[in-house]
């Protein structure tokens, strides 16, 4: 069973915390340190970002972490080397997130094969068009046991949400507002209406809410409207400032989850 299915099955009450971090940031060799600290601290799902020079959907915080990671020498090859053998220590579901161009250059089939080899459960490739995924890549994803996670936004039409629900596995990434990552603010009435509208659709996939989640308050609010939430930019800010990754990550995750 895919670890993503497992985590939703084991936690019917939800409150799942998904944390994004950029591979090779702040230092090239921090990837595994951060991953292990997140698992130990009780994170439910981890999203590892593969850095890209032109991350169109991301805000300044994540773009800056991408630039630093690329400067540190992070590549997809290096990431797979770093993740080799990680399943001996880490059991939480792991999703790789990145833009399509570096994956294309690596070779999509080879990429999927390496994902399976190191124990990746799903992929988020925001600029891979659904039509191309369905026409060309879907059998490859399935062959290597990889779930493809799609995004929806407040502007996504109902018909499109249904289409996405049909073709997503694991969960739907529910972008909380019309924004790039790292946008600030609390949850508004408009957003609540959007969450309720989607919840009333009876989708087969669980949803996780991302964009604008940074602390216990925003996390627990989001959890009222979905199975959990995703933290990205706020976590990048934390690791950038940290002098003791393991300690700071543990404290942060506990604080967000309210333990």
């Amino acid at each position: 069973m895919n670890r993503l299915d497992q985590v939703f099955e084991n936690n019917p009450e939800g409150n799942l915390l998904n944390v994004y971090f950029t591979a090779g940031y702040p230092k090239l060799r921090d990837t595994r340190t951060i991953l292990h600290a997140l698992e130990k601290a009780g994170t439910d799902i981890v999203e590892i970002g593969m850095p890209y020079s032109d991350p169109m959907a991301d805000g300044p915080t994540i773009q800056q972490s991408n630039d630093v990671a690329i400067g540190n020498g992070m590549t997809i090859h290096t990431l797979f080397d770093q993740l080799q053998g990680m399943r001996e220590h880490v059991s939480l579901p792991i999703v790789l997130m990145g833009y399509i161009n570096p994956v294309m250059q690596f070779g999509l089939e080879k990429f999927c094969q390496k994902c399976q080899e190191v124990g990746i459960d799903g992929l988020i490739l925001p600029d891979l068009p659904m039509a191309e995924y369905l026409d060309i890549h879907k059998p490859t994803f399935e062959k290597y046991g990889l779930y493809n996670v799609f995004l929806i936004t407040p502007q996504t039409s109902e018909a499109r949400i249904r289409e996405i629900d049909e073709n997503t596995h694991g969960f739907i990434y529910m972008v909380s507002s019309a924004s790039i990552t790292g946008a600030k603010g609390s949850i508004t009435e408009g957003q609540v209406a959007y969450f309720n509208r989607v919840n009333a659709m009876g989708l087969r996939n669980p949803r996780l809410i991302g964009f604008g989640i940074s602390n216990h308050e925003t996390f627990s609010t989001a959890c009222q409207y979905a199975k959990g939430a995703i933290i990205g930019s706020a976590f990048i800010n934390l690791v950038r400032e940290s002098h003791d990754l393991e300690k700071d990550i543990t404290e942060y995750i506990h604080a967000v989850k309210g333990r």
């Binding site: 890209y52 020079s53 032109d54 169109m56 690329i70 590549t75 997809i76 090859h77 833009y99 399509i100 161009n101 570096p102 994956v103 294309m104 250059q105 690596f106 600029d127």
Partner: peptide
């Protein structure tokens, strides 16, 4: 340039071996 994706379209673009623009 090599084939890849830049600013939303598949085209020829100057990039590193790792696909960075």
């Amino acid at each position: 340039g090599k084939e890849g994706v830049l600013h939303g379209s598949r085209t020829l673009l100057m990039q590193t071996e790792d696909g960075q623009v």
